Amino acid sequence: MSEVSSESLDLALARAGDDAAFDRLVAPLRRQLHAHCYRMLGSTHDADDALQDALLRAWRALPRFEGRSSLRSWLYTVATRTCLDAAESRGRRAMPVDLGPSRDTVVLDQGPLTDVAFLGPYADTGLTNELASPAARYEQREAVELAFVAALQHLPGNQRAALLLFDVLGFSAAEIADTMKTSTTSVNSALSRARKEIADKVPARSQQQNLRTLGDARVREVVAGYAAALEQGDSELLVSLLTEDVTWSMPPMPYWYAGVTAVMDHAVHVPMTCGSWRHVPTTANGQPALACYLRPEGESEYAAWSIDMFTLRDGRIAAITSFIGKENFTILGLPPTTD
């Protein structure tokens, strides 16, 4: 049976109430739909909720689906509207850089902020480096990179949706206008404003481009060097891996550091002195990362502490983002402790 006829049969069965047929229809799109929800909302947990809500809405509305667009387009329409509703009620996700200027010296007496919703990491397993369509501008991994998703959070919902649907997923302006119940003129205007904002906040070269230029061997070398520097308390090694303008942020901590002097002041007073470390290489948001497990003095177990994600430039670390909290390990499918 051809793929088209199989989909048509499942669509007919699903319309008649067959939830297994609906699951088969959704399965090939579920991973990308989830990534779309994450880009819109900046949180894996919010994306989980939004996708579940969107699929429930789609299931209930399926008998009214007339097939004037593809099932893919229709599902993205439902998911986008669901995310717009969620974004309106929950607000945008922030990064420490959004909250104030960088610190010049180490901060030891300030705890995490509990009244700010911070951007979270994203498990990139299953995402490809392919464009969603010939019209798309961004690869799928580029479109979950930290700088891009953080910049998206500064856009109003309509601009965020228009940019993602057009530049990431390859929808036409007319399709987006139908999704957002507006005109193509409004869509084109939203696209223009969104692209300007993104261009002002996102580096010209994506991490995917930088990583391909560096090569896997150099990326592994940098990540392994960072792990060794923290585990051995080797400040000279760490300095050799950093750019002069490196930044280090630690959501949900509100403060952040800019410049190698400030970053090293933090490093030698906090991670290099707070206990013993074990690191597990991983990836998140299409970027190299380490799962960092800490064993404080007097303890016997290495427990989940942070996911340290790296932005690389010219073979060195230009930004470290430490997502603190064991919940981030769950997102990436990592254990809460290690030997």
Rank of each mutant, 00 (worst) to 15 (best):
M1G: 13
S5G: 09
E7M: 13
A16T: 04
A16H: 02
G17Q: 02
V26G: 03
Y38T: 03
G42A: 07
A47W: 06
L71S: 00
W74Q: 04
D85K: 12
T105E: 14
V107T: 11
T114E: 14
D115I: 05
V116L: 04
A117C: 07
D124I: 03
R137H: 14
E145N: 02
A150M: 11
Q153T: 10
Q159L: 11
D167Y: 02
F171I: 05
S172V: 03
A174V: 13
I176V: 01
A177Q: 05
A177L: 03
S189L: 13
A190V: 02
R193G: 02
A204N: 09
R218A: 15
V219N: 05
V222P: 13
G225F: 06
L230K: 10
D234L: 10
T247H: 04
W248A: 01
S249D: 13
M250Y: 06
M250L: 12
P252M: 02
P254M: 06
G259D: 10
V260S: 11
V260T: 15
H266M: 15
P271A: 08
C274I: 14
A284I: 02
L294A: 06
E299I: 00
Y302F: 10
R313I: 00
D314N: 11
G315S: 05
A319G: 08
T321Y: 09
F323A: 01
